[in-house]
Amino acid sequence: MADENNTPVFQIQRMYLKDLSLEQPNAPQILLEQTQPKVDINLALGAEPVADGMFEVTVTATVTTTVGDKTLFLIEAKQAGIFEIRNVPAEQTEGILSIVCPQMIYPYLRAIVSDVCTRAGFPPVILTEVNFQAMFEARQAQLEAQSGGSTAVN
């Protein structure tokens, strides 16, 4: 029995759309424009503990499409998941929360963004594949560079 209590656990408890927003602030006039729009896409990740061994992980996509200096449309979608992670070393938990969980959530987010664009009357915006491992490693390298590679002693 004691052996079971130390067995690593990783499982999805729930996957859900946490927030969704579509804005077309300059419609209908901007819809008559013939200029090719500019599309900017930003991704953000978040992870928070919600209970003992339970974490909410979010991936947020913000898609801003402009024609000149006017917004054609803005979509913000936040897809979330609740994950149970127990008996996993802290350094591995961080990687799971930053790489594995977002990889599971991201396909849902991609589908939502594409669907919302289509339902708003625009061609779908297809979010590109994301290498969450590379993002995690780059962020770790940046944090290490900012700390100068030294450790503080209290």
Rank of each mutant, 00 (worst) to 15 (best):
M1S: 12
E4W: 04
P8T: 09
Q11E: 15
Q11W: 06
I12M: 12
Q13G: 15
Q13K: 15
R14E: 15
M15A: 08
L17T: 08
D19N: 14
L22C: 09
E23D: 15
P25H: 03
P25D: 04
A27L: 05
P28V: 03
L32A: 14
L32Q: 12
L32W: 05
P37I: 02
I41H: 04
L43Y: 06
A44V: 05
A47I: 06
V50H: 07
D52Q: 13
D52V: 12
M54W: 05
E56T: 03
A61I: 05
A61H: 03
V63A: 08
T65C: 09
V67Q: 01
K70C: 09
L74C: 07
E76R: 09
K78S: 06
Q79K: 03
A80N: 00
I82N: 07
I82M: 08
F83H: 00
F83C: 04
E84A: 13
I85G: 01
N87Y: 05
V88W: 00
S98C: 10
I99A: 05
V100G: 02
C101F: 03
Q103S: 13
Q103T: 11
Y106S: 02
A111Y: 08
V113T: 14
V116A: 06
A120M: 10
G121Y: 01
T128F: 06
V130E: 03
N131V: 05
A134Q: 15
M135L: 15
F136P: 02
E137M: 10
Q140P: 06
Q142N: 12
E144L: 13
E144V: 09
S147F: 14
S147C: 09
G149Y: 09
S150H: 15
S150A: 13
T151S: 14
